[in-house]
Write a protein that binds this DNA or RNA. Structure first.
Lengths: 225, 225, 225, 225
DNA sequence: TATGAATGAGGCTTCATTCAT
DNA sequence: AATGAATGAAGCCTCATTCAT
């Protein structure tokens, strides 16, 4: 049935085997990239941004120092990748929630945002600090710009939502971005609260407390709370 | 009339001169300590925690690097002193406000706290980061403990206040520390908001925004806003 | 008529095809070797000896890094091959010129030598530096020896020529190798002159200047210029 | 006789002692700087530019690696200092010779230049290579510029001289800078000649050869040699 | 045979702290 | 007491070469 001669069939089989192999290789390479990112993240969470070294990351993945530089051009690039991955997951959740909001569940974005960030406060704060540091030392300014543009896109969507609700008279009439900003601040504060060593002895019911804080957030600016 | 011989009288005069000199010396020494602290703070604000070196501090005070180590045992100690100083000034303002609250100005502590911290957000955040870093690297654990005890004392006062108002039915009945914690979070968030590069392009009226945020804080848990 | 059975006849045909293939392979292999050498040379000229990496060479030829090591045992070997190729082309030109000289064109060798080297001063100097570096790091001492023997052979021919002309009373009576050495020095200097950044702002007529220099060389030791 | 009181005289004596001490310290510091420069130079001559490391230099002076960076901001700065020192000594000799030339000893500059450079050909060539490398990697472009300006100043003086002699009809009428350039090339070539491994087996009378070469240089362009 | 991921020695530089003067 | 030169551990990154597939 085949129209191909033997040698061509063979060749084609070889090709397929070769492609298979190549794909396998590419996958393995990507896997390693992920291993590096995961190891870096784990170490960052474990020890904080201050003290993680390239050597530690390499040794955690059980590879040589140099291998890291086959995948990333610098330590900063590793960190930027982690930042983007985190930001993207956040943005995706938020988009879903904005969708829900447009279908009536008006509180969805606020909840989604708060819950996403507070779900893993250690990680959330880690990325804050990482970003700060990279900005402070002016490493990777273009990538940082890109990151901020990503956020701006989300902000714009949210602002429209707030504008709409102000128009309906449901929210106090202040510049719409006040809402997102205030909400961001509250969430940010909640994340910091989670970490604060000052509170660690006092707070016995962190979940309840965070619920309380989120509730504040959800009702910001409501004309009748 | 004098029972003392000439040389003794001279000696005594010398002594007095010596004491004078010694006192002068002590004062100068203390002054220098302050100079070091101020220089360190100025540099930290200017450049961020990452890049301030002992050498820079010394050169700003116009003394030798070694001299710094006559006053402080380590760079960390300098930073801890700054932390304490800041914390004390905050605590003192808060105490005054609690006093006012007991005389009826129920919102005084919240305002005082928020305003104190937001008055100089750069400094406020600087100290956050400094503390974090010192904790992360586990330098000076005892001093850090001391710092936290200082804060706990304040918290206890505030908690009593909240307890009282809950008893009066003015505030929702949640564990009293929820209030301080939530308020802390909001303030913390406001400080971060001030710095956030993500918002720097968007927020055109930072003062209004911070007012808005503070207003949220002042009304946390109020049964009728 | 054939004494061979079918399968043998087939086999023999396969063999011939195989040989064809093998020859083809060998040629391709040689071609690749040349590609590597050319790519290496191009990169060296473009970027200088400091910064060319094996990876760049491979990527320029569009082959894997490992493949390079199927053709050459080390980066140094590649460079040595380039050195030899250059030296051989120089020697060949010089031989032709010596031939001409024996037929009366007494200035041919000097011209040929000077012009060959100055024709592409970038390349000429590149090889100087390459050789120097290899000698300094004592990589490939045997190959370097071989290279020098090649040069010595040429020198010997030239020396005979100079000896003859001294005998004829056309040149000053100094050790014959003075002439080649002095001429080499002048040429060498001309090449360096071409590159010198110190002169790049001053020299407006490089061709004229080099002509001037070559003229000096051609008349070295002439009793009546 | 002294108008000063006892304490003032004491003070002044103290001052003098202090100044003495300070001067001593400064001198010691300068001495160390020189030690570093000398060690670097020695190692460069010994091993070539390729392989000298900061650690080697430090260990040769018997100091720690870090100390080097109290004196120089980078390895390149050390090398630039060496370059300047060499260039200055060359320029100074040349100035003296130009002075002599103006008093009639017309060949003084040519001799001085040639002899200065050929006096220590190893060093001379080392500095060539060093400069090349620094230029190639574009480290310290301002310092390199400065160096070239230094040379240009000298060139200008020499060019005037050649112009004058051309005007007198003593030299062939070519652009004056041809003379300096050609002479530079010859000298450069002589230096390279000295090092050439290709000649090392052949040249038995290097001094005679260099004399021969210098003689060529001294008579460049002379209308009657 | 061809590949290119992996290696790891080795280079430069920074900076808190020490210590002789 | 004051100084600041000296220290050296520690960090990041490069690249020729190897080797499993």
């Amino acid at each position: 049935m085949s129209q191909l001669g033997l040698s061509e069939r063979l060749k084609s089989r070889e090709d397929r085997a070769g492609m298979e192999k190549a794909r396998h290789k590419v996958e393995k390479f990507k896997q390693r990239e992920n291993d590096i990112l995961n190891a870096a993240l784990a170490l960052l969470i474990e020890q904080g941004e201050e003290s993680v070294t390239v050597e530690q990351i390499a040794s955690k993945v059980d590879i040589g120092k140099g291998t890291i530089y086959k995948h990333f051009t610098s330590k900063t690039e590793i960190y930027m990748r982690l930042l983007f991955d985190y930001e993207e997951s956040l943005a995706s959740k938020l988009k879903d929630a904005i969708e829900l909001a447009s279908k009536g569940d008006i509180k969805a974005p606020a909840r989604a945002y708060f819950e996403s960030r507070i779900a893993n406060p250690v990680k959330d704060r880690l990325f804050q600090r990482l970003e700060e540091k990279i900005i402070a030392l002016n490493q990777a300014p273009e990538l940082i710009d890109e990151l901020h543009q990503m956020r701006n896109a989300i902000q714009t969507s949210l602002n429209k939502m707030f504008e709409h609700r102000i128009g309906e008279g449901k929210l106090k009439d202040v510049p719409p971005y006040y809402y997102y900003a205030a909400y961001w601040a509250l969430t940010q504060g909640a994340v910091e609260l989670y970490h604060s060593k000052s509170f660690s002895g006092v707070v016995q019911d962190m979940d309840g407390l965070l619920e309380f804080v989120m509730d504040i957030g959800v009702h910001i600016g409501n004309k009748q709370s």
